[in-house]
Amino acid sequence: MELAGKVAIVTGGASGIGLATAKAFLKKGAKVVIADFNDEGGKQAEQQLKQGDVEVVFVHVDVASETSVEQLVATTVEHYGRVDIMINNAGVGVLGVTHELTYEDYHKVISVNQDGVFFGAKHAIKNMLKNGDGGVIINTSSILGSVGEGGAFAYNATKGAVNLMTKSLALQYAEHKIRVNAVAPGYVESGMVSKEALGDFYDALVDRHPVGRLGQPEEIAHAMVFLVENEFVTGTTLMVDGGYTAQ
C-alpha cells in the first residue's frame, strides 16, 4: 500500500512511539489524526507536526470508551472522508506483585490495552468495509505479550491477548482486503524508560537486549510503515526488540 493520500489514525499519538509513527506516516504523504487522552500533549504534537504541506489534526479520545472511539472514527471520516489505517497504539501499564493488585488497577490496564484495541478495530473496520477497498490495522503489542515479566501480570495478560486478537481479526477480514498485524517492541527509550527515571534498573534493562541498548521510537515507527506498505503480511506479530525474545 502506498501511504500517500491515505488516512491514518494513531492512538496514543501525542508522544513516544505514537508520535514517531505519526511523523513517519506524514513523511510518506499520509493524512494523520493524532488521537490521545492528553489534550495538551496532543495539541502540542499537532502544532509541532503542522509544518509545510502536511495534513494532521488532533482529536481527543479515551480508548477505554467505545463511544469515544466511535466518535474518533466519525470525526476522522467527517474531516478526511475515510479511514485507511488504524494504529491501536495507546496503552498503560501497572507494575506490582499480583496479590496486591487491585481490581480497579487491573481493569484499567484491560480497558485501555485490550478493550481499546477491540473498539479501535471494530469501528475502523466498519468504515473500511463501507469503503470496500480494504485497509490496514496495526496493534501495538509488546515483548511482554510473548514472555513473562514478574510484576507485570495485567500488562502481560493484555499484550498476550492483543497478539491473538490480531490473528483472529486477520483471518476474519482477509477476504475484504483488510490486513491486521501487530508490532511487539522491546523496551524503548521514553520519558518513563530512561537512565534518569530508572537509575540502575536502566542498565539491567539494557543488559537484557543482546544488541546492547534499548530501542528508539523511530525504529518502532519504521516497523509500522513496513507493515502498512507490505501487502503480503497479515496476522503476524513483528518483534522489534533488539533480540530480547531470541534468548
Rank of each mutant, 00 (worst) to 15 (best):
M1Q: 11
M1Y: 10
L3F: 07
V7W: 03
A8D: 09
V10C: 04
V10D: 01
G12M: 08
G13W: 04
A14K: 10
S15E: 12
G18L: 00
T21I: 02
A22I: 07
A22K: 06
K23G: 02
F25A: 02
G29I: 04
G29L: 08
A30S: 14
A30F: 06
I34N: 10
K43S: 09
K43A: 11
Q44D: 12
E46K: 06
Q51C: 02
G52T: 13
G52I: 13
G52N: 13
D53A: 15
V54K: 09
E55I: 03
V56N: 05
V61N: 11
D62W: 06
D62P: 00
V63Q: 03
A64M: 06
E66L: 03
T67E: 15
S68V: 06
V69K: 08
L72H: 01
V73R: 01
V73L: 02
T75V: 12
T75I: 09
G81N: 05
G81Y: 01
I87E: 10
N89T: 08
A90R: 09
V94W: 06
L95H: 07
L95K: 12
L95E: 12
G96K: 05
V97A: 10
V97F: 11
H99K: 13
L101R: 13
L101Q: 15
T102H: 01
T102Q: 03
D105Q: 15
Y106C: 08
H107Q: 14
K108E: 10
V109T: 13
S111C: 02
S111K: 11
N113S: 09
G116L: 06
V117P: 08
F118W: 14
N127H: 11
M128K: 00
M128L: 02
L129A: 00
N131F: 09
G132I: 04
D133W: 07
G134T: 09
I137S: 03
I138T: 07
S142V: 08
L144V: 05
V147K: 13
G148L: 00
G148Y: 01
G151P: 08
G151Y: 02
A157M: 13
G160I: 06
G160L: 07
M165C: 02
M165P: 00
S168P: 01
S168K: 04
L169A: 12
L169N: 00
A170Y: 02
H176I: 00
K177F: 08
A182I: 04
V183K: 02
S194P: 03
K195W: 00
L198P: 01
G199Q: 12
F201W: 13
D203A: 14
V206L: 10
V206D: 07
D207I: 00
D207W: 00
H209G: 12
H209D: 11
Q216N: 10
Q216E: 14
Q216F: 05
P217M: 03
P217W: 00
E218H: 05
I220Y: 01
M224N: 07
F226K: 09
F232G: 14
T234C: 11
T237R: 00
G242D: 07
G243A: 08
